[in-house]
Design a binder for these strands. Structure first.
Lengths: 127, 127
DNA sequence: TTGACATATTCCCTAATGGGAATATAATAT
DNA sequence: ATATTATATTCCCATTAGGGAATATGTCAA
């Protein structure tokens, strides 16, 4: 198999820098039509429309017709899974990080020492 | 062009479900050797090694040699850009999604109340 | 050394990506 | 009706992704 379809996975949808830009632009000023996005992104219109389709398919944006324009609106809710996933690393990089790391390395040294006499167990060791 | 190389972009690196699994596994228990990952992921060893290489290239993991094993350690810091990017939608979650059933969480009522007293900004014309 | 184990790399393959160009569809104006 | 504007879709193409299989590299043990 190749990679997971971008049209079915939020993580893939936002893996595209251009699509993140679009999301950013939609994030402030709730509505934007395609032409405006084209101008800001300096990308050909078909390309923008294609990215928008991907974002639509994963539910990250919704469209409303306004005359001949299509007004895109961000549906931030769909970013929740990403947020949640990232969230559970929060504790690892805040102020606790140094302490945890140190503790882990201390433990690693102990394990390493113990392991010298009774090898075969996995352990951390620097180099 | 195809998409930005996964080896140069964190967002692409974590777009792969398997790689997120690896990151998850590394998140608890700082060191894991490849064999252990292979067992947990139920994925052929070469596949795992390849994913690990990607994660290495973007700096999300580091390796330490321990005999014939390679102990992988998570470098959470590299997730910061993702976290930061997601973070500036936090506001929208709070303000814009207040009315949406965001939760069985206790904050739901508070948010709704706040939203009533400080009503919304511009919205899209529906349809 | 030989052999077993742990990990990485290479080659091959199919599927999917994203841009470009051209075209299709839709709405508005004249 | 025709023209013009706004957006979407299609076709083509070079690039890449990621799994499978085989192989290479590295490390330990007897």
């Amino acid at each position: 198999m190749a990679r997971a379809a971008t049209t079915s996975d939020i993580f893939n949808a936002i893996a595209e820098p251009r699509r993140r830009e679009i999301v950013d632009l939609l994030a402030r000023g709730y509505c934007r039509d395609v032409s405006e996005l084209v101008r800001k992104l300096k990308l050909p219109q078909p390309a923008v429309s294609k990215h928008l389709r991907v974002l639509r398919k994963v539910g990250l944006v919704t469209v409303h017709k306004a005359g001949q324009r299509r007004l895109y609106e961000l549906n931030v809710d769909e970013l929740k899974p990403v947020h949640d996933w990232i969230q559970h690393f929060e504790q690892l990089w805040t102020d606790h990080l140094a302490g945890i790391k140190e503790a882990a390395e201390t433990t690693a040294r102990d394990l390493a020492a113990r392991n010298r006499s009774a090898p075969g167990q996995q352990h951390c060791s620097k180099e």
